[in-house]
Nucleic acid binder design. Structure first.
Lengths: 336, 336
DNA sequence: TTGAAAGCGCTACCAA
DNA sequence: TTGGTAGCGCTTTCAA
């Protein structure tokens, strides 16, 4: 069986308290004893049980990351960034993918908390903020990433979605588009709503209206939904000459639909995405998209939790980063 | 503070043992008492501490998944598949991304074990199998996915890499290519080596040789390495007319390099990838690639750990799935 | 059927 | 400096 602190103490002829002190580098122990104990630990190949330690309320140096779907490159890239910064700061990151299901969100939230993470980063939308209260009670810091979260207890880092939507609209407007439709994921996703709001406002500024009928929203199978919706959109009378997709995956679905219909992008229809994941740079044609500073967001999120952990939390509850228009080949001037 | 089993017992006027039995649905308790206790638990919003339970050696119904890089769509898709099947079977999945660094592999391995996962799925290559022995000692089931692992203690599920390599070669051969180069990731990755071996063997069958100089291997920044290596390859005298890339990310790097050099794919150079991630279907041109059955692999891996957990482990230590050639637009006949 | 009590492995406080 | 010891919250005998 595995060696415990008792084994080490016995072998070294000291009390478990002494061993515990050595493990944690606390208290006062003579060099000599300390080395002796180290040796025994080594010899017994002793590994302190984090579980037992957690039970007594010790820090675990792990952060939990909750994402809606790890197979969406956007979140995979977020996860990568979070892991990176976490690691730099000495934290391990545990990732859970909720498949956008409420039940799994709840389950993983509980799980992570039970696994006693020191802090939590949430990239999943949450309807029921009540779920967070156990965390709040235990004063486990929470920051939400890429999603706003209307709770006084959670700091949030996200891109300016509203502004991003405007950017997209302006770009399309400059190219002369007037018949424009929008593809969104489920409308309960706040970032989508904001992006659309920004988009709509920019259009309005140019005297254009975006009727609700031109906004297609779907579920969470982004690729498929994007394709299906685009099929509908592009086959109708007076089809739009431009599509704004609330994320890259939707945009790719749109791209596939256009291709399937024998339409050329951007000659027949312009498409702009959102996120600027690796996907955007490799598609055919490469996707014009609104870039989110994924690296920066991941880093910032980690910094925030850890700052809260150290009680030097910035008062700033919200960190809004700048979106950026990246023009590639999927958008062009309207051909009349 | 949070309610403990003691609070519940006190409130319900019973012993903690009784409460414990209710929680676990074990032992004999009268309907009456049981309901009473349930009510109290509800009222106190009591949640059993998994940590404490884990300390006493109870199952946690969580599986750990270790991947080298979650931002590689292949592993993100694997993670998705694993999560899905795990969830179906009542298990939560905790994902850790090691960035291909030995130190992180070790750290996360320890971490997951300390967080007391019931089983482990490993998608990361491991040099030092010794690291697994603590798990083995505790008889925590381990299965490796998408990677072979030469340990008697781990079952493994992966695609036939050798066969996949052959498939790629045959395809290229049929198209008439003779000047062929190979791009691999770090050669310590066993799957890459196998793919190359298969590829080489198929070439040999056609009387063609693949000199070591034509095999470029790099580090773990797949996209960048693929691009850089392809740049070199395509700028040299008598450049290859076809490239076999050991994974899609490398292939995309190659695609970008070709584009940067003003070469057309597949007219000037054919490219075949490996994995068939979402990336392969969206690139310009879409990538001919060797498909791995990602869903099936994920599902199988989960099934295997859980079977081991239930002690109905199949004796079969290795599950090899069939790779499949998916022909898209990045390969074509040699133009002479 | 029920409950008392002995751990699980570790931390932290207090006395020595 | 050291060691004794009381928890942390739960599971699991073993008696009652």
């Amino acid at each position: 069986m595995k060696a415990t602190i008792y084994d080490v103490a016995r072998e070294a002829g000291v009390s478990i308290a002494a061993v515990s002190q050595v493990i944690n580098g606390k208290g006062k122990i003579s060099e000599e004893r300390r080395n002796e104990i180290f040796l025994v630990m080594e010899r017994l190949n002793y590994r302190p049980s984090v579980i037992a330690a957690a039970l007594t309320g010790k820090k675990t140096y792990t952060l939990g990351l909750l994402v809606p779907d790890i197979s969406n490159p956007f979140f995979a890239e977020i996860a990568h960034a979070v892991e990176d910064q976490g690691h730099k700061l000495g934290y391990s990151i545990v990732i859970c993918s909720t498949h956008n299901e409420d039940e799994r969100i709840e389950r993983y939230l509980t799980l992570l908390q039970q696994k006693s993470v020191d802090g939590m980063i949430i990239g999943t939308g949450m309807d029921n903020l009540e779920l967070l209260s156990p965390l709040v009670d235990k004063s486990i810091p929470i920051v939400s990433i890429a999603r706003e979260m209307a709770s006084p207890y959670v700091q949030t880092v996200h891109v300016g979605d509203f502004e991003g939507g405007k950017l997209a609209a302006q770009h399309l407007l400059e190219l002369g588009h007037t018949r424009i439709a929008v593809l969104a994921e489920h409308l309960k996703v706040s970032s989508s709503r904001e992006r659309i709001r920004g988009f709509r406002e920019a259009l309005a500024g140019a005297g254009l209206e975006l009727p609700d009928a031109s906004v297609k929203s779907g579920g969470y199978d982004l690729l498929r939904d994007g394709k299906r919706q685009t099929m509908e959109l592009l086959q109708q009378e007076g089809r739009p000459s431009a599509l704004f997709c609330c994320n890259d995956l939707l945009a790719i679905g749109a791209l596939q639909a256009a291709k399937a219909l024998g339409l050329r992008v951007p000659e027949d229809v312009s498409i702009v995405g959102f996120d600027d994941t690796i996907l955007a740079s490799v598609t055919d044609p490469p996707l014009t998209t609104i870039a989110q500073p994924i690296e920066a967001m991941g880093k910032l999120a980690v910094d925030l939790v850890i700052a809260q952990l150290a009680n030097k939390a910035d008062a700033k509850p919200e960190q809004v980063l700048k979106p950026e228009l990246v023009v590639r080949k999927s958008t062009g001037a309207v051909s009349k």
